[in-house]
């Protein structure tokens, strides 16, 4: 029989403390993956949004096609392509890249980060595009007749309205990102689910796997609360 739960010790036992400590470490990796993806994908998504909205076809069409491909294929597959294709196709596995100093874990982490940033930038860009296109034309006209430049109009007038428009879809997408980081396990990034799996493989205990759910839940509760606050603050300006 497999010892699914370790009844041998007392209820709060050494295992629990050991597992919690290890999962915390894993969750740290999860959080770094999450925050780095967010910080990089938002500006990149904004650039993508401007490009796909451009009236200059040689710019618009490639970006439209790229966003279409990224959104049309699984993130899991993209992760594998980023991690394995350099080694398979170019005989230059990312673990050997000098920029990672020969550190395998670092190489996998940044490989996964790259895939996440590209994937989420594409999703964000579509959200931004919708948010920008939903701004009434009159707001631009008002800025024009008041003699503002295009960048003044965007940053002083349009942007906050765009943020308000995209808040709900963005909170959705960001919460999805928290959970999507679990996919990085498949390319040996030592995030929380990876750590929990180690316990299954090495110690043959399965409960750490379910325990990880608590970490995700608590973190998402915090995010939901923050988005609620932001929404409340921005709704001040609208009936």
């Amino acid at each position: 029989m497999y010892p699914i739960f370790n009844y041998a010790n007392s209820y709060i036992n050494d295992d629990f403390i050991r597992v919690t400590g290890q999962l915390w470490k894993g969750f740290g990796v999860t959080l770094s993956l999450f925050f780095l993806t967010l910080i990089l994908a938002i500006p990149l998504g904004l650039i993508f949004a401007f490009c796909t909205r451009s009236s200059f076809l040689p710019l618009k069409l490639p970006f439209r096609a790229f966003v279409y491909v990224i959104r049309g294929t699984p993130l899991l597959l993209q992760l594998m392509i980023v991690i394995y294709i350099p080694g398979i196709a170019f005989h230059a596995p990312i673990t050997k890249w000098s920029m990672f100093g020969g550190n395998v874990a670092t190489a996998y982490f940044f490989g996964a980060l790259f895939a996440f940033v590209i994937n989420y930038a594409c999703y964000f860009s579509e959200i931004f595009r919708g948010g920008i296109e939903n701004i009434p034309k009159g707001q631009y006209e008002a800025c024009d007749v008041l003699g503002m430049t295009r960048s003044e109009a965007f940053f002083k007038v349009i942007l906050l309205q765009v943020i308000r428009n995209i808040l709900a879809p963005m909170s959705n997408e960001i919460i999805t990102l928290v959970k999507d980081t679990a996919l990085a396990r498949t390319v040996a990034v030592t995030e929380i689910l990876f750590c929990a799996y180690e316990f299954l493989k090495v110690d043959a205990i399965i409960w750490p796997l379910f325990y990880t759910g608590l970490f995700y839940l608590v973190f998402n509760a915090v995010l939901t609360w923050l988005f609620g606050l932001a929404e409340k603050k921005l709704s001040r300006y609208y009936k």
Partner: peptide, 23 residues
């Protein structure tokens, strides 16, 4: 564009549907 902006300032425009900045 710079000249257009300058010339625009000779004019003021009040719109049919106001277009105030909501924020």
């Amino acid at each position: 564009p710079k000249q257009i902006r300058k010339n625009r300032l000779y004019f003021g425009l009040v719109f049919q549907s106001f277009h105030l900045f909501p924020q």
